[in-house]
């Protein structure tokens, strides 16, 4: 039995937890600022880009992508967390279907990620980027797609993690490579040919690229590398496949 009320309350719970875990909240706000204003500002001084976007402007789409990546993955870790601390059972014995719980987790993870990504967009004018209302709305749409895709990926992986220790492994072997290979910090064309295929099977690459289409000024060396239609198509397909996979795995694995 699918229950909207249950979805609603699962989402509300995740938001409450997010704002109550001060540390998590602060880290998620400060981490992108460190990347932008320390790493980004530093490299801007030594990288000559000529025309078009500055380096610090160039990495904003990537940092938004990173924020969504970390937030989405961390949200799905709450499934592991809930299991470890027993709360998952409270949800599993309720007279609602497993799909309800998956949808609740999916929407809460997505909404939290988009919320954090949106806050970051307000930095764009400080960096000298011109973001109008249409750009803003386009970004919300694209961020939602990416957040949905990655939260679904996380939900698909989470049931296989038997403990919170598994989270560290995931962080180091999946999340960080995903970030570095996504074109967030340097163009994908700069990645060694031998491992470039990893960038092309990385959903984050398409998300970051789509953000570049919206946020970066035209021209120069640092531009989007793929057509936006391709970006959106890949992410949409990935999101759909992962959502179904997550629902199936969740149903099977408890």
């Amino acid at each position: 039995m699918f229950s909207y009320k249950a979805v609603y309350v699962i989402v509300m719970r995740e938001f409450k937890r997010f704002f109550r875990q001060r540390g998590r909240f602060i880290v998620s706000m400060v981490r992108p600022l460190i990347w932008l204003f320390i790493v980004g500002a530093g490299f801007t001084k030594i990288i000559d880009v000529g025309e078009g976007a500055d380096y610090i402007q160039f990495i904003l789409p990537g940092i938004v992508g990173m924020t969504i990546l970390f937030s989405s993955i961390f949200s799905t870790i709450s499934v592991v967390w809930d299991r470890e601390f027993g709360f998952l059972r409270e949800m599993l014995v309720a007279p609602v279907s497993r799909v309800t719980i998956v949808v609740g987790k999916l929407l809460s993870g997505t909404a939290l990620a988009v919320f954090q990504g949106t806050l970051l967009l307000f930095i764009a004018p400080i960096l000298g980027l011109d973001v109008g209302v249409t750009d803003f709305l386009a970004m919300i749409f694209l961020m939602t797609m990416l957040a949905l895709a990655i939260t679904a990926l996380g939900l698909f992986v989470a049931p296989f993690l038997t403990s919170l220790e598994g989270f560290n492994v995931i962080m180091n072997f999946i999340v960080l490579p995903m970030f570095f290979l996504s074109g967030a910090l340097f163009p994908i064309s700069a990645i060694p040919r031998a491992i470039r295929f990893l960038s092309f099977i990385n959903p984050l690459s398409y998300g970051v690229d789509s953000f570049k289409h919206v946020l970066l000024p035209a021209g120069g060396r640092l531009t989007p590398e793929m057509p936006i239609v391709l970006d959106i198509a890949v992410i949409a397909v990935f999101a759909i496949i992962m959502t179904f996979s997550a629902a199936i795995v969740f149903d099977k694995k408890k």
Binding site: A6, R17, Q21, E90, V96
Partner: peptide, 21 residues
């Protein structure tokens, strides 16, 4: 224990009431 530590007593009960429609 299967309570959510980061919710209040009232919120834990409220969560339950939504799950049970």
């Amino acid at each position: 224990i299967t309570l959510d530590n980061q919710l209040t007593a009232y919120e834990n009960l409220k969560f339950h009431s939504y799950m049970y429609n």
